[in-house]
Every structure is written in structure tokens, then in C-alpha cells.
Nucleic acid binder design. Structure first.
Length: 557
RNA sequence: GGCAGCGUAGCUCAGUGGUAGAGCAGAGGACUCAUAAGCCUUUGGUCGUGGGUUCAAAUCCCUCCGCUGCCA
């Protein structure tokens, strides 16, 4: 029975390149999930886009003498390039800068306003008389009242890490012109989160299939009591507030960005030629929607976005929010400003995508933070991907190719050991089916690797390179069993390692896309002509460990 | 300060009531189809500390120590 699955992926902020933390946290998991479901024959829609609004982009633009739109477009292009090279298979990766997104955002804003879930109130905001504009919290600098650091910002102090209100800063000044700001009253709209408190709590308590960390965090937050939140700002970059007298204000980015999931689906429907098709993913109660995000984003996806959806009505709430924890680099927390990060475009300029996908999958921060180190990356590549899996593929294919005229041999009777290995291949398909369905990616890829390991043992025991000298049939049978396993591995590893799985599929003599072959054993028939095999993966020089590690912390070029 | 989480072999980690596990690293071995890959054997842990519950605790409860994150 075919299912319809909406895969909603966190919107990357278009003010800088992606790093491995982003990929491990929010981008690789949904891609694995999407490829798995597509192989199963399910109807998948995986959408996301660049988040183009918000203050950091305007700051970056001013620093570089460009417009915010130019910055956003530049990184959007880079994201698209990265998705393609890493194999992140979005059905649509759009931006929050489209007319469609503004339209959908305004519809939600106005509907919630109409229903009393959005209200107006006056707040005190910093205003720079020299720049003649309101300053968002990050635009105000001053001395930290807690640690005395002179470079604290209005939202928090980077030195001591304390968050604060702009009015707390000693000697506040405009970040751009150093003028002392005035605090002025300004009218803004607020989302009445308090109105959803009880409904949200009741809803969340039913989500027993959520990950423990997501459930804990959300429940605790709700039980502390929600506060209404401002959803408009005095800036000129963003979606304009669709109310007379508020033309100079913008919808606050956190309110508008989550709407992207819906607006992107609508954009996808329009371009597919059936404008109403979005409804099949948002209004059909049987459709499950999964939101893949990092743990820093939980609040927005388990509380704020569901509240907005409840207020709007007639749209599916999230089915699951499998938020990942963080990835650390060489034992330390990622830091963009200190360049303590491995940047994705940089990685992709020097290495293949599958080794990275392998490491981040088998070491995915699903339930706890995990660490990325170059030593571990090289080791996992050399000892596991190359030696266990790649070498299994290569030893089987090269031997068959040379000894059986490049064709899949005809097997004889299967003894109990051969049957057990074939049984394990079938079990792995079933087990991984269950694990992937529940978003247990790390455990899933580990069970695939166990199958490869077990098959290496099987080959050693059967020694077809020996038996071929006196019992060609026994040799053929053992190799045929191994080929059955290879075809199983190409399928179960496809969601994780799409490039090498497709290659293996072709080495086994198949044409077309492996994704179209279904989540099942697709053993090549005896006599099928194999492609001349090449190694699937390459060993990496251990010297790269020092070379790559020393790049960390450098000034970014 | 409040809340949450973590602490298991040299390293990275799995294991939530029933005889302490995997991979890597170390030691030894047989094999040779394969990218000097694969396979077998083996060394190594009082599961942070102290107490409690239980026939039985790495696992549940409490104390303390150390680390991390979130919040004030």
C-alpha cells in the first residue's frame, strides 16, 4: 500500500556557507528518509529553501557593500550546488524571497489576525537618530553589564554568553555609526501563543512516537507557560506587514520562515501544473509530515508552527519532528566566527560525497552529540567503507568477471550456510525497513555493514578461489550467493550512499535507476552480463589527518 | 542559581532489571579471490563515587564528584 509523505526540511540561513553540522543535523537525515520512501514506492515531497530574511543578512550585505538580495542569491546558488554534489534530493528547494511565499505568509498573518490570534501592542525599541532607523537587537553594541566586555550586542554578550535586553547595555551605541540610540515606542503585532497553551500540551502528550529529547524539551517548555511573541519588526528587509499604516514594518523572520513549508508545497504544486495539488500533502489526514531540524530549532517546530497551524485550521500538524543533536568538530563546539568548522563546499571540492554521507550516517547525532574528526573520517573510510564493503564488492565482482566470462554464474544447491547468508540479506532488508521507517538511521546503516561483514566471512569459508580448481559448481554457488548479497546491499545502502549504490547496480549488469527497483532483493539472473568492475571507494592517505586538522581555526579566505 | 543530559576497554561508542559488548588500536595465526583488503584467535573494564531497592542493578532510587547543553 502506497503512502504519501511530506518531508519538510529546515530552511538554511542564506548568510554563509553550509558546514558539516548543518548536514549531520538537518540535511542528510531527510535525504536518507526520502530515498528510502521513494524506493518503497511511496509518494514523497521533500521541500525546503533558503531563508533570505532577517538581520544578519543585512549586516553581512553592508559589510560587503552589497544588497541583502545579492548576498541571499549568492548563497542560494551555493546551496543548490552543494545539494547536487552531495546528493540531497529535494523535490523543490526555493527561497523565502518569492512572491508566492509573501502571499502565503500574508494569508496566514491576516487569517490569524482576523481570528484574534494576532494582536497589536506598543513596545519600546532602540532608534538611531543618525541612521534614522530602528535598530534590531543585534545592531546595538555596548558594554556588557555582567562581564564588562565592550563588544556585547543587544541580544547577547559573546564573551560571557549571557542573553540580555538592549536596555541593559551600558553605553549602548549603534553598531554602524556608534551614535547613542534613543528608545522609542513602536507599534507591533504579537502572536497570542498563550491561547494555544492547553491545546498544544494535549496534542504533544499524544506524540509518544517522538524522540525522547524532542518530547522532553517541548513538554518542559509548555509546562513553564508560553508567552506571546512579537512577530513584526522595524526593519526594511523581509515580508511587508500587510496592514495599512505598517508598510514600513516587516514580518519577523521566525514567524514567516516556518510558513515556507506550506508556501513551498504550493509553489511545487503550481509548477507541476496542478495548483490544487498542495492539498494532497496538507489536508489529507493520512499523510504524515516529518520535520527534519537541528535541536536548536525544536521550539519553532513543536510549539510555534503547530500553534500557527491550529489557529489557521484545516492543515495537518507535524506527525514527527526528528530533531538531531549537534555535531562537534575534533571535540569542540562548532564556531563560525572562529572558523572551527568543516565547510561543505570546501569538503566537496576535494572529496567524494559518499564517504562523508557514510561517516555522518554511522555516527549520526540522533540521540546525543557526536564528534567529527578527520582521523575518524579517514579511518571509517579506509577500514569500513573501503575494506569491509568496497572490498567485498570488488573481490566478488573481479573474481566472477574473470572466471565466469563476465556473467553472473549459475548456482547449484544452496547448503545451510548459503541459505543462512541469503536469509540474512532478506532479514537486513526487513530490519532496515523498520528502522528507516522510524528514522533510526544509525542503527540501520550499522545493520547493513554487519551483512557485508558476515558475507566476507562466508566467502572465506567457501573459498571459491580454491574450489574453482576442482569443483566449479561449488565456486559458482558461493559467488552467486555473494552476488545476491551485493544486490541487497546496493538497495539497503542506496538511501545512505546513493552514488556508489547506483554504480554497484550497474556493475551488477542492471540498467536504469536503482531507486525504481523497489525495496526488495533484486538479484541479477544467471547469465546477466556484468560491467567491468572498478573499486567503489578509494583509500585516503593518513597524512590527510594532519593536513585537514591544521586547516581548522584558520582565518577564512 | 534552576532544568536536562552525560560519565562503560587505550580511543570512539552500543547496551534501561537476568553470565559486561562492538569497531579501531596492541599481540599471535592460517589463507591469498580482492584496493597489503578479508578471515580466525587473543590481551584489556571493581560500567565516575558512596549508599539504597531487589533473588538479581551498567540498567531503578538517593548522595557526592566531573563534564556538557538550555534557561535566569
Amino acid at each position: 500500500m502506497s503512502e504519501r509523505i511530506l518531508i519538510a526540511v529546515a530552511w538554511p540561513y542564506a548568510d554563509g556557507p553550509l558546514h558539516l553540522g548543518h548536514i549531520a543535523g538537518a540535511y542528510l537525515p531527510p535525504d536518507i528518509f526520502a530515498r528510502y520512501h521513494r524506493t518503497k514506492g511511496n509518494e514523497v515531497l521533500m521541500v525546503s529553501g533558503s531563508d533570505q530574511h532577517g538581520t544578519p543578512i543585512t549586516i553581512k550585505a553592508e559589510q560587503e557593500g552589497k544588497t541583502p538580495g545579492e548576498i541571499a542569491t549568492q548563497y542560494h546558488q551555493q546551496f543548490l550546488d552543494s545539494w547536487q554534489k552531495l546528493g540531497i534530493s529535494f523535490d523543490l528547494f526555493t527561497t523565502t524571497g518569492t512572491a508566492n511565499h509573501a502571499e502565503v505568509s500574508c494569508d496566514i498573518f491576516l487569517t490569524l489576525l482576523d481570528r484574534g490570534y494576532i494582536y497589536k501592542a506598543t513596545v519600546s525599541q532602540a532608534y538611531c537618530p543618525h541612521c534614522r532607523r530602528f535598530l534590531s537587537d543585534r545592531y546595538i553594541e555596548g558594554t556588557c553589564p555582567y562581564c564588562g566586555s565592550s563588544g556585547a550586542r543587544g541580544d547577547q554578550c559573546d564573551d560571557c554568553g549571557k542573553p540580555m535586553n538592549p536596555v541593559e547595555l551600558i553605553d549602548p551605541r549603534c553598531r554602524l555609526c556608534a551614535t547613542t540610540p534613543q528608545f522609542k515606542d513602536s507599534e507591533h503585532f504579537f502572536l497570542k501563543l498563550t491561547a494555544f497553551q492547553d491545546r498544544l500540551l494535549a496534542w504533544v502528550k499524544q506524540q509518544t512516537h517522538w524522540r525522547q529529547n524532542v518530547l522532553n524539551f517541548t513538554t518542559r517548555y509548555l509546562e513553564q507557560g508560553l508567552k506571546d511573541r512579537a512577530i513584526t519588526r522595524d526593519i526594511n528587509w523581509g515580508v511587508p506587514v500587510p496592514i495599512k499604516g505598517f508598510e514600513n514594518k516587516r514580518i519577523y523572520v521566525w514567524f514567516e520562515a516556518v510558513i515556507g513549508y506550506l508556501s513551498a508545497t504550493k509553489e511545487w504544486a503550481k509548477s507541476s501544473g496542478n495548483e490544487e495539488k498542495w492539498r494532497s500533502f496538507w489536508q489529507d489526514k493520512d499523510v504524515k509530515s516529518y520535520y527534519f531540524i537541528g535541536k536548536d530549532n525544536i521550539l519553532f517546530h513543536t510549539i510555534i508552527w503547530p500553534a500557527m497551524l491550529m489557529g489557521y485550521g484545516d492543515l495537518n500538524l507535524p506527525y514527527d519532528v526528528p530533531a538531531n543533536e549537534f555535531l562537534t568538530i575534533e571535540g569542540r563546539r562548532l564556531s563560525t566566527s572562529r572558523n572551527w568548522a568543516v565547510w561543505l563546499p570546501d569538503y566537496l571540492s576535494r572529496y567524494d560525497p559518499d564517504p562523508l554521507r557514510y561517516l555522518l550516517s554511522i555516527n549520526m547525532p540522533e540521540t546525543a552529540d557526536t564528534d567529527f574528526s578527520w582521523r575518524e573520517f579517514i579511518r571509517r573510510n579506509n577500514d569500513e567503507l573501503v575494506a569491509t564493503y568496497g572490498n567485498l564488492v570488488h573481490r566478488v565482482l573481479t573474481f566472477v568477471y574473470r572466471s565466469f566470462d563476465g556473467c553472473v554464474p549459475m548456482a547449484g544447491e544452496f547448503d545451510s550456510h548459503s541459505q543462512a547468508v541469503i536469509g540474512m540479506a532478506e532479514d537486513t532488508l526487513n530490519t532496515m525497513d523498520g528502522l528507516l521507517y522510524r528514522c533510526r538511521f544509525r542503527e540501520a546503516i550499522r545493520s547493513a555493514m554487519s551483512l557485508a561483514q558476515e558475507t566476507n566471512r562466508y566467502l572465506d569459508e567457501k573459498s571459491p578461489w580454491k574450489t574453482i580448481k576442482q569443483d566449479r559448481q561449488a565456486s559458482a554457488t558461493a559467488l552467486y550467493v555473494a552476488i545476491i548479497v551485493l544486490s541487497a546491499l546496493s538497495t539497503v545502502l542506496y538511501p545512505f550512499l546513493p552514488f556508489s549504490s547506483q554504480k554497484l547496480h550497474e556493475y551488477l549488469g542492471f540498467k536504469g535507476r536503482i531507486e525504481d527497483c523497489g525495496w526488495k532483493l533484486n538479484s541479477p539472473p544467471p547469465g546477466q552480463r556484468l560491467l567491468s568492475p572498478e573499486p567503489l571507494f578509494s583509500k585516503l592517505d593518513e597524512g590527510l589527518v594532519d593536513e585537514e586538522t591544521s586547516r581548522l581555526g584558520d582565518i577564512r579566505c
